[in-house]
Each structure stands twice: as C-alpha cells, then as structure tokens.
C-alpha cells in the first residue's frame, strides 16, 4: 500500500534526552491513514520514548508534531487522547487495583443520567457491561466480570490494554509491544485486531521484537538505533534477515 496525500500523524526532527542520555535524535517519521508502521530497534533504541512523545507523556526537547497537518504541542496525554490518539504503553498502562471495566473507561467514565451524573456519580454497571462488549467486539477474549486487573494473568492484562486502546481510538493507535506476555494464539488475535483497525482507516504504530509479526502486519518499517532512524522503508524491501541486520547494525541503513 503506498502512502499518499497528507500524513495522519507526523513527527519532524524530534529530539529528547533524559538528563545526559539522548534517547531520540532528530527522529522524523510519518503515519498515513489505513497504514501500519512497524517501529523496531534493539533494547534502548528509543522506541518507547518516541511513543511517549507521540502520546503526550513527554514533551520533546525539540522538533514538531503534526496531526492531520496541524501543529500540536501536547501539554498532557489528555490532549492527545482528546485529539484521537490512543496508546498502549509497554510499561504498566493499567491500574491494577481497578476492575477491567474501570480501566477501560479510566479518564472517560460514564456518569449516571440526571442529577446524580451531574454530581459525578458513576454508571458502573453500564461501564462494566460496555467494556466487556468492547473487548469482545475487538475480538479479545478476557475473563468476564468485574475482576480487578491484578487478578488477571499477564496476557489477560495485555489483552485488556489493547482492547482499551483499540476501542477508543479515533485516528491513531500507538501499540508498544502489544504481543508481550501473549501466547501464540492470542498474538495472532492481536495481529488481526491490528489489521481490522487498519482496515477501518486508522493509523497504527506497531512496536515488536517479534520480527515475523512485524513483517506480517506492517506496511512500512522504521528502524531505530541508538535514538536515530537508520532506515524507513516499505515492508516489502525487508526480509527477516535484512531486518535483523539493520536493527543490529550489521547492515547499514540505506
């Protein structure tokens, strides 16, 4: 699939350091509607940092972000969410003590109708029910009920987090290692969730160390090494070996 027209989400010359550690250096990349971009690189390459810049958790030290061609300065993740950017974080994106439904609706709680709602009271049953339906709709099987996330297995938690991101996303989904903790069958499920989102016209950023998954589901692959983009090319130009070589630096980025 060739990218054309205006990018859905674009980063230009983004740099970001943590103290003396330069995690991102002049990173540029673009994501088009209906496209899955794979973001790969060794541990510490800067993938999660890029996601956090794109999702509004970190402000970049320099560089620009454009959503639908409009320059954006996220002051908080809240603003990015409002603008239609959903994120699955690699590290703990869920509140373990809250129920599945509460997590899916976190920050977007449904309130009761009428006065009670205006006083801030939650429509908890409705949320639990809808959360379950949402998760089922995106094709993720999680144990039913209002269990807390801490009572789920690692894979089940991951499933909830993915389901939450996918069910809320309106424009962009950033998935930082979504297949972590997942068994083979669930990984395949996740890949089909990604494809479904893509087919709906969303832009998806997919981070994974499982290269066959990346090759299977993405349209384009961006390779990061030590905070820099070393290769940004259509997936068709890679095979398993050349992708691995580019990541490790045995093959120079083109």
């Amino acid at each position: 699939m060739t990218a054309q027209g205006q990018p859905l989400y674009e980063a230009r010359q983004i740099s970001k350091s943590y103290g003396s550690v330069a995690a991102l250096i002049d990173v540029s990349f673009a994501l088009y509607p209906g496209e899955v971009v794979g973001l790969v690189g060794d541990n510490g390459a800067g993938k999660s940092t890029l996601v956090k810049v794109l999702s509004g958790v970190h402000a970049p030290d320099s560089g620009e972000l454009f959503l639908d061609g409009v320059r954006r300065h996220w002051k908080s993740p809240h603003e990015a969410i409002q603008a239609g950017v959903e994120t699955l974080y690699q590290d703990a994106g869920l509140a373990p003590h809250l129920t599945i439904g509460s997590n899916v609706f976190l920050g977007r709680e449904k309130l009761r109708p009428g006065l009670l709602g205006r006083l801030g009271f939650l429509a908890q049953q409705e949320m639990e029910r809808e959360a379950l339906a949402d998760l089922e709709r995106v094709g993720i099987a999680v144990p039913p009920s209002n269990r807390t996330v801490s009572e789920l297995s690692g894979g089940q938690r991951q499933a909830v987090a993915i389901g939450r991101a996918v069910s809320w996303a309106r424009k962009v989904i950033l998935l930082d290692e979504p297949t972590n903790h997942l068994g083979a069958r669930q990984s395949v499920e996740v890949l089909s969730v990604i494809k479904a989102a893509r087919d709906k016209g969303l832009g998806v950023v997919f981070i994974s160390h499982t290269l066959p998954h990346v090759l299977e589901v993405t349209n384009r692959i961006v390779v990061l090494r030590l905070g820099r983009v070393v290769r940004d090319a259509p997936t068709a130009e890679f095979d398993a070996e050349s992708l691995l070589g580019t990541i490790t630096g045995l093959i120079d980025g083109a």
């Binding site: 958790v57 590290d91 003590h97």
Partner: peptide, 21 residues
C-alpha cells in the same frame, strides 16, 4: 463517584492515571 475513582486510580498507578488523561 468519578472523584473517588480518580483517587484510587492515582494510588494504583499514577502513570496509568496520567496516561488515561
């Protein structure tokens, strides 16, 4: 209430709470 929900969410995982907006 939502106020209480946020209170729990922050104590449970402040990063998740912030990331959720």
């Amino acid at each position: 209430s939502r106020y209480g929900r946020y209170t729990f969410a922050i104590g449970s995982n402040a990063f998740a709470a912030r990331a959720a907006g």
